[in-house]
């Protein structure tokens, strides 16, 4: 009897706890997904809007009631999200790759001592702080430099987001580079190449799939970030003329109006549709990451 209890404890207890927790996580994920679909489809089912209107029209006048009949064109927010996220990527990626190369190949000692902890701190700063610093430093600075009445802009959003995704892309790139077969390095050096020739022609190409994974992770994070962006983007309901104009994006719009709209009303449902779109986009990112990772494996 005691033997059985012992055996139960050793073998089954641990395994069942892990299994149960795993199932709970899967259930939670599935129910969130289900819930988002249920809520997000209201715009199209209950209020009879077309997906086309939602994605490609820029007329955003949803009715904050249960009768509907408003306009739910979310194109401005979608374009805003895309622009800011890709701008952030464009700014952050070169710095991330350069830092990753520095930490792994140029000066691992300094890198591990200074850059790694610095990046850790970057991750730990809450997004409201990024937004706040952006609001008090970056926004006025942009206004000043470009001689504008105010500095709320796509650029401000892009820079703030770039700071936020920099650690993600950097640390994933460091892992990718550290995973490059050390045999390549020895082979390259033994052929009398310089460190830079090795880095450019062998190391970075070999780490590309890993680095791309980091970039997409960064992109996913940029897409999902709301608070910091909302504070510096200006929340204007217009397409931006250039990166110095204010506009709005999906997360900022959801965050600012989710509490101001009647539950189940057209306005509220339209916001849920944006949330659903964000979820679908993040699924797509995960899919792309999988494909890239698989391609990387095949090369090896």
């Amino acid at each position: 009897m005691i033997y059985l209890i012992e055996k139960f404890k050793k073998e089954y207890l641990g395994r069942s706890i892990v299994t149960v927790l795993g199932i709970v996580i899967i259930l939670v994920t599935l129910s969130i997904t289900g819930f988002l679909f249920y809520k997000g489809l209201g715009t199209f089912v209950t209020y009879n809007h077309s997906v086309w209107e939602f994605l490609f029209s820029s007329e955003w006048k949803p009715a904050d009631n249960f009768d509907g009949g408003g306009k739910v064109g979310a194109a401005i927010f979608i374009v805003g999200s895309l622009l800011i996220s890709f701008l952030a990527l464009l700014i952050a990626t070169p710095f991330s790759i350069a830092s990753a190369v520095f930490m792994t190949e140029i000066s691992p000692k300094l890198g591990k001592k200074l850059l790694q902890p610095a990046i850790g701190i970057f991750v730990g700063i809450p997004s409201v702080v990024y937004g706040w610093v952006g609001l008090t430093v970056l926004v006025p600075a942009i206004a000043h430099v470009f001689n504008l009445p105010y500095g709320f802009s796509v650029l401000a959003g892009g820079i703030v987001l770039a700071l936020m995704i920099f650690p993600t892309i950097t640390s994933v790139s460091v892992d990718a580079i550290e995973n490059v077969d050390n045999g390549y390095k020895e082979a390259s050096y033994a052929l009398g190449t310089t460190r830079w020739q090795y880095i450019y022609k062998v190391m970075l190409p070999s780490a590309t799939s890993g680095i791309l994974t980091g970039v997409i992770l960064g992109l996913a994070r940029a897409f999902g970030e709301a608070l910091a962006v909302a504070m510096v983007i200006g929340k204007m309901l217009t397409f931006p003329d250039n990166i110095l104009s204010a506009t709005n994006n999906m997360t900022a719009e959801i965050a600012s109006d989710m509490g101001n709209s009647a539950q189940g009303g057209e306005f509220n449902d339209a916001l849920w549709s944006m949330a659903l779109l964000l979820l679908i986009i993040s699924f797509i990112f995960i899919l792309i990451m999988r494909i890239i990772a698989k391609k990387g494996e095949e090369v090896k």
Partner: peptide
């Protein structure tokens, strides 16, 4: 130099 483990570049 030629190494123990063949290490052609990818």
């Amino acid at each position: 130099m030629v190494f123990q483990k063949p290490n052609p570049f990818p």
